[in-house]
């Protein structure tokens, strides 16, 4: 019996110790999220066009966190909750605004948090704030300016090309007219030769007629002519 009790004790410990380790690990994992150096704030957004996982969250241009998750909410109308994991030590107030904007010319979005003028209650873990889609006019104007500069440069290049081409065109046209006169002259010279050729053809035809007549009259003589 004592042996069994000893075995029972061993088996009990064998079950309990791993259970404690597992629970400890789970607690550690959960605790790591809860008592960590960050808090999770939900940002309510209308569309996912500009926010994605990893989008930086900034305050006064300084990155204080990132978007870690995006969850769709189907009611009352489809919208999304972006979970922003941000540093705990940054003080943010309930009426703070979250502006989704492009941070550079390529168009990478970022979320800029701005505390209100009048400070109210501090934001705590799992609070929800609304996001505002902000169009960055400065960036757009800069883009337009770049575009116009490029366009004027292109026009200048076209102008230069057309000035350079004028002389070449003139030369081309004169060359073309001389080529046409040459062709005309060649054609005129050729007329006399054509007449001579035609008369030679006519004489040949006459000779051939004579030969054929002679052949009809004296075929054998014609055949053995010149043979002895």
């Amino acid at each position: 019996m004592a042996k069994l009790e000893k075995n029972e004790l061993r088996v009990g410990l064998f079950i309990l110790i791993p259970m404690v380790i597992l629970l400890f690990f789970i607690m550690l994992k959960l605790g790591y999220s809860i008592a960590g150096s960050t808090i999770d704030i939900y940002l309510k957004i209308d569309s996912l066009t500009s926010v994605k996982k990893g989008t930086p969250v900034k305050i006064k241009g300084y990155t204080i966190g990132r978007v870690v998750e995006l969850i769709p909410v189907y009611r009352p109308a489809l919208h999304f909750l972006a979970t922003m994991r941000i540093q705990k030590e940054i003080e943010l107030y309930e009426d703070c605004s979250a502006i989704i904007q492009n941070q550079n010319v390529i168009g990478d979005p970022s979320i800029e948090l701005k505390n209100p003028e009048k400070k109210g209650l501090l934001l705590s873990d799992h609070d929800v704030i609304e996001g505002i889609e902000y169009v960055n006019l400065e960036a757009i104007l800069q883009d337009v300016h770049v575009l116009l500069t490029t366009l004027s440069k292109t026009v200048n290049i076209f102008k230069q090309i057309s000035l350079d081409s004028r002389y070449h065109l003139r030369t081309l046209v004169s060359n073309l007219s001389s080529s046409v006169s040459n062709i005309n002259r060649i054609l005129a010279d050729s007329q006399k030769d054509i007449i001579a050729v035609m008369s030679a053809f006519r004489q040949t035809a006459q000779t051939m007629n004579e030969i054929s007549k002679e052949l009809k009259k004296h075929p054998l003589k014609f055949l053995f002519k010149g043979k002895k």
Binding site: F14, I15, I17, P18, I21
Partner: peptide, 13 residues
């Protein structure tokens, strides 16, 4: 079941 569960946890740890 008891043994494999406990052994897995011990192995991992």
């Amino acid at each position: 079941i008891i043994s494999i569960f406990s052994l897995m946890i011990i192995f991992d740890s």
